[in-house]
Write a protein that binds this DNA or RNA. Structure first.
Lengths: 120, 120
DNA sequence: CGGAATCCGCGAAGATACTG
DNA sequence: CAGTATCTTCGCGGATTCCG
């Protein structure tokens, strides 16, 4: 049983809570989602994620890169081209993420229903 | 293809993005996690989720209640007792959430490793 | 094109005090 | 015990400008 890691997100200082924060942030999940089907350029990601600013997209991509979730490739061309791609680690995250998406699409009506009843 | 729901989290105004925000917020996942094994009192949840303030705990629980994820039961006693419990909807969310936790605990070393290399 | 740097507003979140 | 009310701080995130 103690083969399980003792990462404890309920502790304030545990790294696993930072991970929750990362996943929880507004853009990471969406950005990783756009990269599901293959590498994309910066501007392509920006176009697909509606409402993200250039600054936040940069921050999100950089953070994901630092965490080893995506790789960043710069091509020495004019005009410059930069491609982002899911790493093996990043791809392994897609599965639980899709489970979450599946839940969301399935149960969204229930949530909306609960909300409308709460308003009454 | 379009038998799939057309919830599109990539659109700025889609409800499913609100759901991402909800799940993504700092405390919801942790709070729902504490309720996995049965109902808890307010103070018990507070004690288990390290670092959460009463204010944020209240907000989180209220939001979860509005979304139909938890139920809130007030007992007419002195001193007052309030219990929070996962609803059926809330319990259905635990599965994808645990998948996420599992990923986090499994791959945390990889992430930390990537970070340390990024620092170099 | 793909950023970096700067400024700044506003809402989220913590601390504190009080109440039913 | 389980909140509410109020204040203040803090940093996220948008807009803009400039650079290689």
């Amino acid at each position: 049983m103690n083969t399980k890691q003792d990462w404890d997100p309920y502790a304030r200082d545990c790294p696993s809570r930072q991970l929750l924060d990362r996943i929880g942030d507004r853009w990471t999940v969406l950005v990783l989602g756009t990269l599901e089907d293959g590498p994309l350029r910066f501007s392509e990601v920006a176009r697909r994620v509606d409402g993200v600013s250039q600054k936040m997209l940069t921050q999100t991509l950089r953070a994901a890169e630092r965490d080893g979730l995506v790789t960043r490739t710069v091509f020495a061309e004019v005009p410059p081209r930069v491609e982002y791609e899911l790493s093996a680690l990043g791809r392994s995250l897609r599965e639980p993420l899709r489970a979450l998406e599946a839940w969301a699409t399935t149960h969204m009506p229930d949530v909306l229903d609960a909300r409308s009843r709460a308003h009454a």
